[in-house]
Design a protein around this nucleic acid. Structure first.
Length: 504
RNA sequence: GCCCCCGUAGCUCAAAGGAUAGAGCGUUUGGUUGCGGACCAAAAGGUUGCAGGUUCGAGUCCUGCCGGGGGUGCCA
C-alpha cells in the first residue's frame, strides 16, 4: 500500500488504527513498526467467552469450513494378506484424525477401508495359505517362490487345519485354493478389524475391490475410457494413455495375460466414489511408497471428466522405530515385522495415537518406544491427560467439600488474573486449530494444541487456587472456568481419538 | 540418470510469505505449612544443510549443489 498511498507504512497503520470501528471484543489498539496494527482482546469480553464455550459443549471447536460438502476419507486399506504394521498405524491414525477434524469443520464425512481382495497378491496369499494349511496336516507342500513367509501364515494355516480338518484337501487344488482364499481373507479382515478397534478406529464401510469386477463397474469404466480414446492395445496389453493428460508415462490397465492390474481397480473404484456415490471430494491416505502413483491418478480424474483437485492424496513418510535410542530394524525378507498390535500392546492406544498424529504426514518420523510407554513427566501423552485428571480431581474435591460444583453459579467477569485469561485465550483457539487442520488436511496441529492447552491450565493452577472458602464468589467463577477447560481438553483428546481419564 | 518428500537448538519435532524462529526431552538453577509435584518458573543452547535469486519482508517461493528417505514393474 505504501507506494500507492505515497505514505510510510507506519503512517498508514496509524490512520487505519484511528479509523477502526469500535467492537466489543477489541481492547487496546497499538501501532508498531514497521507497520503493524496490534489488537488486544478486551478482557471483559474474554472472560464472558467462558459462558459461550461452556454452553457450546461438545460442539465447541466446530466451524464451517466444509459447508456440508460430502467428503470421503479412505485410509489404512492395507492388503489383507498380513497383519497391520506400524506404517499402517500411521496411516490409520492420520486418516482417522483427519476424518474427525473434517467432521468438526463442517464436512459430511465417510470413513472407508478399501479391501484389496482381488489381484495377484491375493492369489499369492491363497497359495501360501494352501501350503501352510497342508503342512499343518502333515503334507510336504512348499510355499510359492515369492509367497508370504511370515510366521502368521503358519499360524493361520494351522488354525484352519485344526478347526476345519482336511476338507480343503479333499477338493481339487484350484478349488481349495479359492476356498482358502476366501476363508483366509475373512480371518485376516477380522484380525485387522480387531487391531484397529484396539485404537478405537471403526469404518463406515469396507469396500471390496472384487465387487468392482462382479458388478460391472470395471467394464463400464473401460467402455467410457475406450470411447474417449484413452485406451490403446499394445504388445497384448491394454494401456491407459496418461501421457495425453500430463503424466510422464502411459500405464498398463489390463496385462497381456488378461488380468487387470491394480490401476484398473483404482480407476473403477474412483469412478464409483465420484460418479456413482457422488462425493464432492475424496481423500486417499497413502504411504510414501505409493507416491509415484499420484500423477496417473490425476490423469485418470481428467480422463473421467472430473476436476483433479477433488481428489486429495495425502502422502505420509515412513516410520522408524527406536528403543533406547537404537533403531529397531524391520525385516520384510524374513517376515519379522513389528505389528501394529504389538505396538499398541506395548505402549497403549493413547500413546500410539498421540505420537503418530503429532508429526506432519510428509515428514519422516521416529517413534521412540521407550518414551511412549514411559509413565512420567517426560511423556507428553500423560502431560495432557494429567491436566484433565487434575481438573476431575478438583471437581471431586469440590463436591466432597460441599460446593455446588456443577451448578450454573459463578460470575465469569470475576476472571481477571493473567493465568485465567491466558487459559481462556487458549480455549478460544480450538476453532482456529480445527479450521487450519481441515484446510491443510493436517491433523498434526491437534497434539501440539493439546499440549499448549494443558500447559495453560497447569500454569493457571499454580497461580490460582480454585476452591477458596474465603472467597466464595471467585471460587464459583473458577469452578466454571475449570469445568470449561475440562470440556475443551476432553474435546481435543476426543478429536485425536484419545481417552480423557478422570483419574490416572 | 530422472521424479517426489525431508533437512530448523545436543535429541524428537512445530512454525498459515510477516515482528526478536518456538515447544518437549536432555543440561543448569530455583519453587509446594493449601484443590493431584505425572506440576510450575528461570537460564544456557540457532549462520533454519550450502550457494545464489525473487520480495518492502524468506525457515517458508525459484534455481543449482550436498545429505537422508521413497519411487522409477504388464507387483500392490
Amino acid at each position: 500500500m505504501a507506494p500507492l498511498a505515497r505514505m510510510a507504512p507506519l503512517r498508514i497503520a496509524e490512520q487505519v488504527a484511528a479509523h477502526l470501528p469500535p467492537a466489543d471484543f477489541v481492547g487496546r489498539v497499538e501501532v508498531a513498526r514497521p507497520g503493524y496494527i496490534n489488537l488486544t482482546l478486551d478482557e471483559g469480553w474474554l472472560a464472558r467467552q467462558v459462558e459461550t464455550i461452556l454452553a457450546a459443549g461438545d460442539r465447541w471447536g466446530a466451524v464451517d469450513v466444509g459447508r456440508g460438502e460430502r467428503i470421503q476419507v479412505e485410509y489404512v486399506s492395507a492388503n489383507p494378506t498380513g497383519p497391520l504394521t506400524v506404517g499402517s498405524g500411521r496411516n490409520a491414525v492420520l486418516g482417522d484424525g483427519l476424518a474427525s477434524v473434517l467432521e468438526a469443520a463442517g464436512y459430511r464425512v465417510q470413513r472407508e477401508y478399501y479391501v484389496n481382495d482381488a489381484g495377484s497378491q491375493m492369489q499369492k496369499f491363497a497359495e501360501t495359505l494352501y501350503a501352510r494349511y497342508a503342512q499343518a496336516l502333515g503334507h510336504d507342500i512348499p510355499i510359492p517362490e515369492d509367497g508370504y513367509r511370515g510366521s502368521y501364515m503358519v499360524e493361520l494355516g494351522r488354525a484352519i487345519a485344526q478347526e476345519e480338518g482336511e476338507r480343503y484337501l479333499q477338493m481339487d487344488r484350484d478349488r481349495a485354493v479359492e476356498a482358502l482364499r476366501d476363508e483366509g481373507l475373512r480371518r485376516m479382515l477380522e484380525t485387522i478389524r480387531e487391531d484397529l478397534a484396539l485404537l478405537g478406529i471403526h469404518f463406515d464401510r469396507w469396500f471390496s475391490e472384487r465387487s468392482l469386477y462382479e458388478d460391472g463397474t470395471f467394464e463400464t469404466v473401460m467402455q467410457l475410457l475406450r470411447e474417449r480414446g484413452y485406451l490403446e492395445e499394445r504388445e497384448g496389453a491394454i494401456w491407459f494413455k496418461a501421457t495425453l493428460l500430463g503424466s510422464d508415462k502411459d500405464e498398463v490397465v489390463v496385462r497381456s495375460n488378461g488380468e487387470p492390474g491394480y490401476f484398473a481397480s483404482d480407476i473403477a473404484y474412483h469412478y464409483d466414489k465420484f460418479v456413482r456415490r457422488g462425493f464432492d471430494r475424496v481423500i486417499d491416505v497413502w504411504g510414501a511408497d505409493h507416491q509415484g502413483h499420484v500423477p496417473r491418478m490425476k490423469a485418470m480424474m481428467k480422463a473421467l471428466g472430473l476436476d483433479p483437485d477433488r481428489l486429495i492424496i495425502v502422502i505420509y513418510q515412513l516410520v522408524t522405530l527406536t528403543r533406547e535410542g537404537v533403531e529397531v530394524r524391520l525385516s520384510k525378507r524374513t517376515g519379522e515385522i513389528v505389528t501394529l498390535r504389538e505396538l499398541v500392546e506395548e505402549v497403549g492406544p493413547d500413546a500410539v495415537r498421540f505420537f503418530l498424529l503429532s508429526r506432519e504426514a510428509n515428514s519422516q518420523m521416529e517413534f521412540d518406544l521407550s518414551l511412549a510407554k514411559q509413565e512420567s513427566e517426560k511423556n507428553p501423552v500423560y502431560y495432557v491427560q494429567y491436566a484433565h485428571a487434575r481438573i476431575a480431581s478438583i471437581l471431586r474435591k469440590a463436591a466432597a467439600d460441599g460446593w455446588e460444583a456443577t451448578s450454573d453459579r459463578g460470575d465469569v467477569t470475576l476472571l481477571t488474573h493473567p493465568g485465567e485469561l491466558a487459559l481462556i485465550r487458549k480455549m478460544l483457539e480450538l476453532p482456529e486449530v480445527v479450521a487450519l487442520s481441515a484446510r491443510q488436511m493436517s491433523p498434526h496441529f491437534l497434539p501440539h494444541y493439546a499440549q499448549d492447552l494443558a500447559a495453560a491450565f497447569h500454569a493457571f493452577y499454580r497461580d490460582c487456587r480454585v476452591l477458596d472458602p474465603a472467597n466464595e464468589a471467585l471460587s464459583y467463577a473458577r469452578l466454571k472456568l475449570v469445568r470449561t477447560a475440562k470440556q475443551v481438553l476432553a474435546r481435543t483428546l476426543g478429536l485425536m481419538g484419545m481417552s480423557a481419564p478422570e483419574t490416572m
